[in-house]
Design a protein around this nucleic acid. Sequence first.
DNA 1: CTCGTTTCGCTAGCATGCTAATGATAGTCC
DNA 2: GGACTATCATTAGCATGCTAGCGAAACGAG
Lengths: 140, 140
Amino acid sequence: MADLLALFTQAAKLLREAADEAMRRHGVRVGQHIVLTVLWQQDGLTPGEIARRLDVTTPTIVNTATRMEEAGLVIRRPDSADARLVRLYLSPLARSVREPVRDVRRALERHATATLTAAELDHLRSALTKIIAQLQNESP
Amino acid sequence: MADLLALFTQAAKLLREAADEAMRRHGVRVGQHIVLTVLWQQDGLTPGEIARRLDVTTPTIVNTATRMEEAGLVIRRPDSADARLVRLYLSPLARSVREPVRDVRRALERHATATLTAAELDHLRSALTKIIAQLQNESP
DNA sequence: CTCGTTTCGCTAGCATGCTAATGATAGTCC
DNA sequence: GGACTATCATTAGCATGCTAGCGAAACGAG
């Protein structure tokens, strides 16, 4: 496997699968988790706001929100002032899984990087951050 | 963005999108590219063999092969000896895009890692390899 | 106030991955 | 040689992302 892109694809796939499996036990899927990370910080946002914060498209959030509604994680409510807006609110269930989900993600992170030194971990973080910055600073 | 998993998710998404856009100009999508990498090495493999080499499921290859057939990249042909098997063969088009696709991927790789030093790149490769090894050595 | 523009969420349809189930064929055991 | 098992591609249906296009609502100019 010489290709850095291929290495990246493979690592990302394995991490994503492992994260999904770990969080699934708490009723949260990977696509739903990113929405929760935003709502845990600020409840009652609109799909558009969430999409902008996560750098995904609005339909992605709309569809994920529908699945989360069915799973009992969020509640959709129209905005009282602007009839175009819909606001997403966390259910008690969504609040209650915050810590368990955080814990399993931390555990996965520790496990996945168990064979790396602290310095290597720092370099990895730094490299990822640089790559993200480099790729983001062109399309806007 | 404190979470390493989140950093990873973001970087992987950006790289995937950039790779897709770059290869698209040559009629190849990211999901089709991984199949091509295998067939470029050895033509005439079965969906099951390709899936095993790529560490994905057989249906993934079957569905991707259908789209590649429609795109004129591969030809499906039943095995002459074992009627259960289907063999996938590269089209002339698929052969002709090998180098252009390799080039745009190299260019993307260079661009994405332009702000990293050679040492940082080495560390990144090493870290990714270690993470892959760590995550693979548990499920089998 | 009205008309055109902008801004929303949403639906439709696609690509890429998955699991589960189906059906056809090959191989094996008695 | 006939039945059981294993193996293979395929289909169906789901989750997660995307783009394109819709209809409703708000806003701004005149």
